[in-house]
Amino acid sequence: AVSDRLIGRKSVVMEAISPQNSGLVKVDGETWRATSGTVLDVGEEVSVKAIEGVKLVVEKLE
C-alpha cells in the first residue's frame, strides 16, 4: 500500500503534537495528521512509526 512506504520515513512537525491532540507533519512534501505519545514542537524531526486509519503515529528522532 502507498501508506506502507511512509513507515520509517523522516518527517518534520508542522503543527505541534501532544498525547491529547493530534498535529500535522510533512512527509515527502505531503502533509499528514499525526499523533504521538509525547509532546512534539513545530520544526522537530520525527520518524513515522505506524499508521492508524488516516493518521500517522510518529516519535522524535534520537
Rank of each mutant, 00 (worst) to 15 (best):
V13D: 01
V12G: 02
E62W: 12
S3Y: 13
I17H: 02
D4R: 14
V42G: 03
G23M: 02
V25R: 02
K10I: 14
E30T: 08
K55F: 15
E30D: 08
M14Q: 07
L40M: 09
V58W: 00
P19D: 04
V57P: 00
A1H: 12
T35L: 08
S22I: 12
S11K: 00
W32P: 00
G23S: 01
G8Q: 03
L40S: 00
P19L: 06
V48N: 01
K26Q: 12
S36T: 02
E52D: 14
G8C: 08
D28F: 07
M14V: 15
V57C: 06
S36Y: 03
V46H: 00
K10P: 09
S22E: 15
R33M: 14
E44Q: 09
E59M: 09
N21E: 10
S22Y: 10
K60V: 06
K60A: 08
S36P: 00
E52N: 11
T31A: 07
D4V: 12
R5Y: 10
D4K: 14
R5K: 09
G29S: 07
L56A: 03
A16H: 08
S22C: 15
V48A: 00
E59H: 07
R33G: 10
V42I: 10
I51T: 05
S3A: 13
I17M: 04
E52H: 11
I17P: 02
S11V: 15
V13A: 02
V27N: 03
R9Y: 07
E45T: 13
R33S: 12
E44L: 08
V25L: 04
L40F: 09
V42N: 03
R33Q: 14
E52S: 10
I7R: 06
G23P: 00
E45G: 05
A50I: 04
D28P: 01
P19W: 05
R33P: 14
E30N: 08
E52V: 13
A34I: 00
D28Y: 05
V42M: 06
K49P: 00
I17Y: 03
G43P: 01
R5I: 07
M14A: 07
V39E: 10
L56I: 04
S18G: 09
V39M: 10
V48Y: 02
A50C: 09
V12Q: 06
S22D: 15
S47W: 15
M14R: 04
D41W: 12
L56P: 00
D41K: 13
K49G: 03
L56T: 01
I17E: 01
V48P: 01
S22A: 13
P19M: 05
R33T: 13
K49R: 11
I51V: 12
A34D: 01
P19C: 08
L6C: 06
E62Q: 12
L61I: 13
E62P: 12
S11Y: 05
V54P: 09
I7L: 10
A50D: 06
G53W: 04
S47N: 10
G29A: 06
S47A: 10
P19K: 05
L24C: 09
K49M: 13
M14H: 06
K49N: 06
V48E: 01
S22R: 04
L40N: 01
K60G: 05
K55P: 00
V12E: 05
D4G: 11
G37F: 14
V39Y: 15
E52K: 09
R33W: 11
T31P: 05
S18Q: 05
K60M: 05
N21I: 13
M14S: 06
V25N: 02
M14G: 01
D41H: 13
G8F: 03
S47V: 15
S18M: 06
K26W: 14
R5H: 10
R9D: 03
K55E: 13
L24Q: 06
V46M: 01
V13N: 00
E59W: 06
V25K: 01
L40H: 11
M14I: 15
A16Y: 09
W32G: 00
T31I: 15
V27M: 08
A50H: 06
Q20Y: 12
L61Y: 11
L6M: 08
P19N: 04
I7K: 05
L40T: 02
S18H: 07
G53A: 04
V54R: 13
L61F: 11
T38K: 07
I17D: 02
N21H: 14
I7P: 02
V13E: 01
P19G: 06
V54S: 15
V2Q: 11
L56S: 02
V54T: 14
V12Y: 10
E59P: 02
L61M: 10
A34G: 05
S22W: 11
L61T: 09
L40C: 15
T31V: 14
T38A: 11
Q20I: 10
L40Y: 06
S18L: 05
W32D: 00
G29E: 09
L61G: 07
K26A: 11
S18N: 08
V57D: 00
D41R: 13
V57S: 05
D28N: 09
I51A: 05
V27G: 00
S11H: 01
V57Y: 09
I7Q: 03
V39W: 15
E15R: 09
T31K: 07
S3N: 11
M14Y: 10
V48R: 01
L6D: 01
K10R: 13
K60N: 04
V46E: 01
K55H: 15
A16D: 03
T31C: 15
A50G: 11
E62R: 11
T38V: 11
D28W: 06
V58R: 00
V58H: 00
T38I: 09
K10H: 10
A34L: 00
S3I: 12
V25T: 03
V13R: 00
S36F: 04
V39H: 13
I51R: 07
E45P: 07
V2F: 12
K49W: 07
V58F: 00
T31F: 14
P19Y: 05
T31S: 08
R33Y: 11
V58S: 01
A1P: 11
S18A: 06
G29R: 04
G53I: 03
N21T: 12
K55A: 13
E44Y: 05
S47H: 12
V2Y: 12
S11F: 08
G43T: 02
K49I: 15
L6K: 03
V58I: 03
V48F: 03
W32V: 00
A50W: 07
I51K: 05
N21G: 10
G37C: 14
V48H: 01
P19E: 05
V25D: 02
M14C: 10
S11C: 15
V12M: 09
K55Y: 15
S36W: 05
L56W: 00
G23Q: 01
A1L: 12
S47E: 13
G29M: 06
V46G: 03
S36R: 00
R33N: 08
K60D: 02
